[in-house]
């Protein structure tokens, strides 16, 4: 049976509006748009941080701080909340209700789309780990902590970590609602790789509580930060996710190549 003949029946699987009428592999344009969009957004934010962190971000009690940083914080919280609710609502509402009947081509195409979701998730992890966390490390060696709201905290805890939650939840939910293997069971490595970094947000509560009460300065390798370490190590689970993707896609590719 050809791919054309086995074209995706959108009437039976009315999930993503963007799903092609026939198998087309990965959509590189979407893939690169996602990566470029996140990167450019972060770059712009980083320029803002560079310009206003030291000029109007040193003292929480200055009026300029409220204008340049607290307004940004409130905007970020609102945007993150709306985006998270929107993503969850959209993915759930457009879920495939007939997963037992999807063709290998459609499943393969969805795996490619899932990889795009995972690329967005891991890109945010990358930006958080390499540029976000260590800009905070550098900041704390220069400026005495006055409150929990510093420019780098507003960047990492209220922009990057929420972005991890949004893309992580989106990745998990995409698999749950569109991939047959994930619809009835939970893949442990995926749950670990996504759940661990998401738990960084609650751990921020412990971190700030500790810094407020008994540990004002930032020795970065202090035990108070080891909760972050443990949760970061959960990303080792992505090795299992990659292994699963490769093995399942290999099976699907064999079927598609034989029938195409």
């Amino acid at each position: 049976m050809s791919v054309t003949a086995r074209s995706l029946d959108l009437a039976e699987h009315p999930t993503d509006a963007g799903e092609a009428a026939q198998f087309e592999g990965i959509r590189w344009s979407t893939y690169f748009k996602v990566i470029l969009g996140i990167s450019v957004s972060f770059f712009v934010y980083r320029l803002y941080l560079q310009k206003y962190a030291f000029s109007v971000g040193l003292d929480y009690f200055e009026p300029e701080f409220a204008v340049y940083w607290m307004r940004l914080l409130y905007g970020q919280i609102a945007l993150a909340s709306v985006t998270l609710v929107g993503v969850v609502f959209y993915l759930w509402q457009t879920r495939d209700r007939n997963l037992d009947a999807i063709t290998p081509e459609l499943e393969l195409q969805r795996y490619f789309k899932w990889i795009t979701w995972l690329a967005s998730y891991t890109l945010v992890v990358f930006l958080t780990g390499v540029l976000g966390a260590e800009s905070d490390a550098a900041w704390h060696q220069i400026v005495i902590r006055d409150t929990d709201f510093t420019p780098t905290h507003i960047e990492i805890f209220y922009m990057l970590i929420p972005a991890i939650i949004i893309t992580g939840v989106g990745s998990f939910l995409y698999a749950r609602t569109r991939l047959p293997m994930h619809s009835k069971k939970v893949f442990v490595s995926l749950a670990v790789a996504i759940g661990g970094p998401i738990l960084i947000m609650p751990n921020v509560g412990f971190n700030e509580w500790g810094h407020t009460f008994f540990y004002a300065e930032e020795v970065f390798n202090a035990p108070i930060h080891w909760g972050f370490s443990g949760l970061g190590l959960a990303l080792l689970g992505l090795g299992g996710v990659v292994t699963h993707i490769v093995s399942r896609m290999k099976e699907l590719i064999d079927e598609v190549a034989t029938h195409a």
Partner: peptide, 9 residues
């Protein structure tokens, strides 16, 4: 991302 973050903290 994971390696740098975990090492960092």
């Amino acid at each position: 991302g994971a390696t740098v973050f975990v090492m960092s903290v």
